[in-house]
């Protein structure tokens, strides 16, 4: 078995206020896997993401692409862990789309030629060719989301981690995102409570509730277990529900 891209072992974190946010999270992600991290609000999903990138120092072991996360290695780890934040306005901070996509590669110290090539490649990968000179402020929500994805793709991380990628998107924007993520061959982790998105983009789901993993398995199996998902503040996704009630009455 190849080495996992991401390994979490007994990850624990306590807020400064004393509340336990993560209570011994353990799972691993294999190369090429598309994994969803699902759970209700307040389950600890975002805290776990911040812990994986070393933004909060959690107890336990976190390994990304063979690098064990320590305060000293956080920079190396972040090179391999491509984090796409929920609010694209936070991610797109440069005045031009191309400069923003170039930010990561340039910071990695790549040659200008290589940086340019990667910018073109990343923008093409998210379907934003010709957007180089645009200003992030003028993009639509969907375009911003895709541009934010490009800024991380340009760094060619070992694993892409997307925090609530479908939040605020209209159906068309959401569809474009799904069509983009689904065929990706890179390792992908989607943090969301949009379970229909999970069904369409991932094979495996890890359900987190109250800071602990409560289920880990194939999407179809885990998410069609009505008792399980409802016990943890989620709902069986429409794509998996049989005879699900709708607003049309019968």
């Amino acid at each position: 078995m190849p080495e996992p891209v991401l390994e979490l072992a007994d990850v624990r974190y306590r807020y400064p206020t004393g509340a336990e946010a993560l209570r011994g999270v353990t799972f691993a992600v294999q190369p090429g896997e598309h994994v969803a991290l699902a759970g209700p609000n307040g389950a600890g999903k975002s805290t776990l993401v911040l812990a994986m990138a070393g933004f909060v120092s959690a107890a336990g072991t976190i390994r990304v692409a063979g690098h064990t996360l320590t305060p000293g290695s956080a920079r190396d780890v972040r090179r391999h862990l491509g984090l796409v934040f929920q609010d694209a306005d936070d991610q797109l901070f440069m005045p031009r789309v191309a400069d923003d996509v170039a930010f990561g590669p340039a910071t990695m110290g790549l040659e200008p030629e290589e940086v340019r090539a990667r910018v073109g490649e990343a923008l093409a990968a998210v379907g934003l060719e010709g957007y180089e000179d645009r200003e992030p402020y003028h993009l639509s929500v969907g375009e911003k989301r895709r541009a934010a994805l490009a800024t991380v793709l340009a760094m060619r991380p070992q694993i892409l981690v997307l925090d609530e990628p479908s939040a605020d998107l209209d159906p068309r924007g959401r569809r474009m995102l799904i069509d983009l993520l689904r065929p990706m061959t890179s390792t992908l982790m989607v943090i969301t409570h949009d379970l229909d998105l999970v069904v369409e983009t991932c094979r495996r789901v890890v359900v987190l509730d109250a800071g602990a993993v409560v289920a880990d398995g194939p999407v179809r199996e885990v998410l069609s277990d009505r008792a399980l998902v409802e016990a943890h503040g989620l709902e069986v996704p429409l794509r998996l529900a049989q005879g699900a009630p709708d607003m049309q009455g019968t």
């Binding site: 920079r75 609010d87 930010f103 800024t151």
Partner: peptide, 11 residues
């Protein structure tokens, strides 16, 4: 959050 997003990309 912006600073975090920058740091995440190696700033």
């Amino acid at each position: 959050r912006i600073y975090r997003a920058m740091t995440a990309r190696g700033f």
